[in-house]
Simulated assay, not measured.
Amino acid sequence: MKKNGWKQKKDQPTQKERVEQLIKQLDEGVSNFSYSPEDFKAILQMKALMPNYSFRNLIVAKAQLPRAQFIAPFKRWNELGRYVKKGQQAIRIFAPRFVKAKDENSNEDLKLVGFVTVPVFDCSQTEGEPLPIDSLKIELNGDSPEAREIINFAEKVAEKDDCPVSYGDAEGANGFYVPSQHRITVSDTLSINHRCKTLVHELVHSKVHRYDIRSSKKEKEVVAEGSAYIVCSYFGLDTSDYSFHYVKSWSKGDTESLMKYGSQICEISGKIIQEFQRLKEQQQSLQQLQTA
């Protein structure tokens, strides 16, 4: 029987009730998650290595490369034993332009006459010697049948929506979605389990954020990762080790983020679950016909 569009089996919770239970688990998991002293130490060490740019420049950098986190000039990366990957495009930020000038006492001084743009690169665009931030990278290991099944469903849903999915160089990220081209790229270096979680995360972006220019980056990422956690958990893949950390990092101390976006996560994950469930039922029916 169905209740409010959610499939229900006798004496079992409805899909909606199961999603709501998972939302509660996500909320509790993120609320109770805390960074270790080692995590804070790595972040502080990383900041100490990087040039101190203004908030304005950080916004300018993220407008060009949303995943930008730690930026520095080409020369600084070389000093750290790292090199810009071939084919990477520089991020342009502002730098003050000074000229020599003489004051009333005929002493030379520097006078600010304007700003020029200078090239910098994000850490994700470089490779070489390890960085303190590398110790914070969390990966989902393993190759489970549940993950492979979810990947199959996600690829079919994306294909139906004319959204190509490719696996290859994700430019330092685990994956990304390009709204202007309506396409998804997932890193081919990830394990199957991590690849699965990332694909569902980007699938949410493709279905919800393609034309969304009003929501903040934080909202988009919390909603995408929260929905990915719900969908993957529903079909048997636990991504809590990664998802709790990810959502917490985007919440940045805002304990009400999940409360704000909870209904949106519930609605989005519910729709994707129903799409996956239909594909699963079709697959099971086909298998039954083949073995009949």
Rank of each mutant, 00 (worst) to 15 (best):
K3G: 09
G5N: 10
K9T: 05
K10L: 15
K10M: 12
R18C: 09
V19N: 14
L22W: 03
K24M: 07
Q25K: 07
D27Q: 03
E28K: 02
G29M: 06
S34P: 04
Y35T: 02
P37I: 03
F40M: 15
K41Q: 13
K41C: 08
I43D: 05
M46C: 11
A48G: 14
Y53C: 03
R56Q: 14
L58P: 01
Q64D: 13
Q69K: 06
Q69G: 15
I71A: 08
F74I: 03
W77I: 06
E79Q: 12
R82A: 09
K85G: 03
A90G: 10
I93H: 07
A95Q: 10
P96S: 10
D103C: 04
L112T: 14
F115A: 08
V116T: 13
V116S: 12
T117M: 08
V118R: 08
V120F: 13
V120K: 03
T126S: 09
E127Q: 08
P130Y: 01
P132G: 10
I133N: 05
D134K: 00
S135Y: 01
L136T: 10
E139C: 01
N141F: 07
S144F: 03
P145C: 03
P145D: 12
E146D: 12
E146G: 04
R148L: 04
K160C: 00
D162R: 01
D162V: 13
P164T: 08
G172P: 12
G175H: 10
F176G: 11
F176P: 04
Q181G: 14
T185Y: 04
T185L: 15
T185G: 04
S187K: 00
T189G: 01
T189K: 07
S191I: 09
T198D: 07
T198I: 06
H201K: 05
E202T: 07
E202R: 05
L203P: 02
H205W: 09
S206P: 10
K207R: 11
V208M: 13
H209C: 08
Y211M: 09
S215T: 12
S216P: 06
V222L: 04
A224Y: 00
E225G: 01
A228S: 14
C232T: 12
S233H: 02
Y234G: 05
F235Y: 15
G236R: 06
S240E: 06
Y242S: 04
Y242A: 03
V247H: 02
K248D: 08
W250M: 02
S251G: 14
K252N: 15
T255H: 05
E256D: 13
G262R: 01
I265P: 11
C266N: 12
E267G: 01
I273L: 04
I273Y: 09
K280Q: 15
Q283E: 15
Q283I: 00
Q283F: 03
Q287E: 15
Q287A: 15
Q288Y: 01
